[in-house]
Design a protein around this nucleic acid. Structure first.
Lengths: 339, 339
DNA sequence: TAAGGGAGTGTAAGCGCTAACAGCGATGTC
DNA sequence: GACATCGCTGTTAGCGCTTACACTCCCTTA
């Protein structure tokens, strides 16, 4: 089933069929009708590869994320997708599972597909990629990682500011022994969150902290919390690298009979929808995912009659959201509870 | 940057470059090295569209889901993706948001991409699609909807059996007034779940039920529950169409001061990971998502040296999982509580 | 009435790649 | 020494589409 067969059946040339497909208005309506009829009858579906090849363009965006299972990434993706659709673009996604070799192969794949723009919402990085991407001339937006370049825009979150709000708040509630639950991606930005905690502790000699890490999942949050407590360390507050893992932490604490927030405070990060729906609802830091999605799209899709945006680094300040999972530190040194 | 430029730089023909790219073993290793060097230096990325067009094949699968935000769909997708990767296939996804016109356009898109196989994990349907797909000769797997055909395999869940387990269980615990929280996709399979509840109630005159529906999200579950209770109806158990919405229901109940399971029992469906991590953990029905993913892949990707599978309908029996969210019906007619 | 122009359609040259086939030295065989 | 064989590489015809350009009517306009 190709253009030619449709053309033959409609008694026109392939060019005319192509014009109908791309609804160029030059086609006479009677001709158009004939062609459309033929298309319908033949159940013809244009070959997108041929189209892209011949057209040279692609009207599609690539989105690469570390872990789509985490609603944080998904929410950004969702926004990008709907913005892109609104402007007639397709979007194709890829997961990296926080592995940089996956990042590399995904980016190669996207370049191979000749996407019109590429968003990398990832925590891992491969330095060589920057050069490769620069030379590809494709508009790129990196979230969290990478460095701004001619065609590369960076979006960053001011983790330090965010984490400081959390540690200050916890400190003001009397917490002194902190725990940090992170995930396995020990690269740049995640470390930013962790380092921000460590720095805050370093600045204040009354504070201490211990860390644990596991996979970026509900189960991972639970395991990391288990590991943190198994060591015998008795924090009064646990700062989690994100909401998903915080919900996992909540579960582990509940099973140990440790009440939140009476016995232990817990904080998340991202302000994912789930953080309002879990119990207790999470104190967390809001990252404006929709806004990020919009920004990404506006960087990637040139507004009609406009040149590429010149802004190269955008910093976002997370907003502190207090809910139910934090409270005053328990007054007396709490006896370790066993389930 | 195309094959020809690489060929020129490496002083070989385009065919040889192509052979290197497809690592045909016939190329002399010294030649191969020269070509690889040229590829590296030119930062050459083969154009996938040209490749697919010329090759005629595609080694990619399409996966279409109603709502990737719901971990149920995502888990299946994840399994398909990893199986596909293991066999050297790419997978490209699309969301339908439960809208059948989106389904149609997504399927068209996939056909246009000439995917090697197509999985539709959707609850909505468009009858005309079946014929279109049959004629496309692409191997297709439908989950929940559609009818088996020459090239179409169907996977179904025996919702009736599952729901019966739930209603029987609730009945044995003394529940008589039931609520059902569904979502807006009022087509086939979802209705199956709802109809199964209605039928169970019809079979047993001591039971009554009232239904409400909203979006398939946490928030939707909460809203539907609110609507259900706002009517003044006082169920002692709420059966939710899936876990995600059940977690939303849990939230609404908590805010109203209705304790689960003491004042109200709640059940989910799917046994998504979240159902273990929410509070209280959900009584639910397990649907083996990984198994489904594996089945789909095995239907779509022909095993080497094997013909297409002949199995056309596969029925899955959900398994009942009792957790914390269900308990005996409250003894006395409960006074309506206000927050 | 002839020239000009626009509306609608056809022709054909690619887009970048693959793969069948051809070519061509070097080696082996009788 | 003639010839088949093998290992490697080049030539080239598409894959299905888009699009510049050419062309044909038919309608204006002077």
């Amino acid at each position: 089933m190709n253009l030619e067969q449709v053309a033959r059946r409609a008694k026109v040339s392939t060019a005319t069929v192509s014009r109908v497909l791309n609804n160029a208005s030059v086609v006479k309506s009677s001709t158009r009708a004939r062609v459309e009829k033929a298309i319908e009858e033949l159940k013809y579906h244009p070959n997108l590869h041929a189209r892209n090849l011949a057209g040279g363009k692609s009207r599609s965006l690539g989105v690469i994320a570390s872990n789509m299972e985490n609603p944080f990434f998904f929410d950004i993706y969702k926004t990008i997708e709907s913005d892109a659709h609104a402007r007639g673009y397709e979007v194709v996604v890829a997961n990296t599972d926080y592995r940089s070799e996956q990042l590399v192969s995904s980016i190669r794949l996207m370049i191979g597909r000749r996407v019109a723009g590429l968003a990398a919402i990832v925590s891992e990085m491969e330095p060589a990629l920057i050069k490769e991407l620069t030379e590809s001339r494709i508009p790129v937006v990196f979230y969290d990682v990478g460095q701004p370049r001619q065609n590369i825009t960076n979006i960053r979150v001011n983790y330090r500011r965010g984490i400081d709000k959390v540690t200050d708040y916890l400190h003001s509630l009397g917490h002194r022994r902190l725990g940090f639950v992170g995930h396995h991606a020990m690269l740049g930005p995640i470390n930013d969150r962790m380092k921000a905690v460590l720095d805050a502790v370093a600045r204040n000699s009354s504070l201490e902290v211990k860390t644990a890490a596991d996979a970026d999942t509900l189960e991972g949050g639970r395991q990391a919390t288990r590991a943190l407590l198994a060591s015998g360390y008795q924090p009064t507050a646990i700062i989690c690298v994100n909401d998903l893992m915080a919900v996992g932490a909540l579960r582990e604490l509940r099973e140990r009979g440790i009440r939140v927030p009476q016995d232990m405070s817990v904080t998340g990060f991202d302000n994912v929808k789930l953080s309002e729906f879990c119990y207790p609802a999470l104190t967390t830091l809001h990252i404006p995912r929709e806004q990020i999605g919009h920004i990404i799209c506006s960087c990637l899709i040139p507004a009609p009659g406009e040149t590429a945006p010149t802004e190269h680094e955008i910093v976002i300040d997370p907003e502190f959201v207090v809910r139910e999972s934090t409270g005053p530190a328990p007054a007396a040194p709490r006896k370790r509870q066993v389930t």
